[in-house]
Design a protein around this nucleic acid. Sequence first.
DNA 1: TTCCGCATGTAATCTGTTACATGATTAC
DNA 2: GTAATCATGTAACAGATTACATGCGGAA
Lengths: 202, 202
Amino acid sequence: MSIEHSILAVLSFWPSTGYDIKAEFEHKAAGLYWGMSYGSLYPKLTKLEAEGFVLPIEQEEGGRKKKLYELTPKGWQEFENWLRLPPAFPIIKDELLMKMSTWHDDMEGSVLISHLVKRKKTTEEMLVFVNDWSKNGVSYISDVGMLSIRYAELRLETELKWIEESIHALENNQLSKGQDPNGNTEKLLARRREAFRGEKEK
Amino acid sequence: MSIEHSILAVLSFWPSTGYDIKAEFEHKAAGLYWGMSYGSLYPKLTKLEAEGFVLPIEQEEGGRKKKLYELTPKGWQEFENWLRLPPAFPIIKDELLMKMSTWHDDMEGSVLISHLVKRKKTTEEMLVFVNDWSKNGVSYISDVGMLSIRYAELRLETELKWIEESIHALENNQLSKGQDPNGNTEKLLARRREAFRGEKEK
DNA sequence: TTCCGCATGTAATCTGTTACATGATTAC
DNA sequence: GTAATCATGTAACAGATTACATGCGGAA
């Protein structure tokens, strides 16, 4: 998942400056790419250059300092080798899911609903962005690239459906039953009460 | 997204050792939780104890060294404050999507298909695991927690549908057209040919 | 008696971010 | 002229992993 390879990937589209690369990651962050800071980007470019994967093709432009990087033959090779390597399974860190998994019955359901409402808004915005992306007449998207756009759309749509479903279930007390073979819900709430009782006595 | 809060979250279920916590993250990694190494887990537990969020409730068990940690009142407080805080938007790093977005026409489609087939297998396994999880009669899952299980199921099912759709499109040359307002495909392939041509001449 | 699962921990390293410092060019 | 954007870079720090080191207890 190395950042190095993402940089090579961006450079495969067209020669770019460090600044360009960052921008590319920024606005395509619809769950397809991931961002990176200048603090790691510029040192990586220097490193890639030292290793012979990229080369700055000098631009004068009136003396303004600007390094437009291009892939070297070795860089193309490395990029394509990487493409052929089986990708790692995705890493997903979703705080909302973590919170929902550990939400307990003495916590206010209204707060959880507000989390879901907020997530819905962001997901909707993202969907609008992705929908537009593939039809804006400006961005370059290859035919294979369209598949990944399609993935982003499907994922976001599914998420929206789930959010609506979940809010509905929470608001109308229609949650499906989980499983609790060891009476853990009661134990948990008792431990919690105990902790807070001890606290109050102080 | 701090690891600290995930630890508190696991401890809210029941008192656990460092080893237990790691195991919990491991087998629930169905895209809901995320793993962590002992190298960060144990130091964090020490830190959380120093800060008064957790407390080891000693277990002798024949002199075998084992620290069973429990949340303190302050730990419960911190955990619940965290639950109320609006969660950050999920971070997704999916190498497959990155590779597909930058796949180019001179790369073998068969390799991409093999990536998809591999992903399909893993996704299917994950789905089996999640399906079983909520019905195994052993694991504890709260009613709210069921919502997150439902999310995992929907996401994995959607992904499977997309994988099948994509493999079909690739195998039968039925990709939908992307967009290329500046003739970038040709430029890209020309730059690549140029790089490799220069290489051969050496 | 040997291997596996339970159990804890540290040191070196890697990877990345934040905050800062600097300055040119363009649009209003 | 002044604000926003383009543009590059460094130093300090934060966060996490890998590899290593250690050892008990139970099962085969």
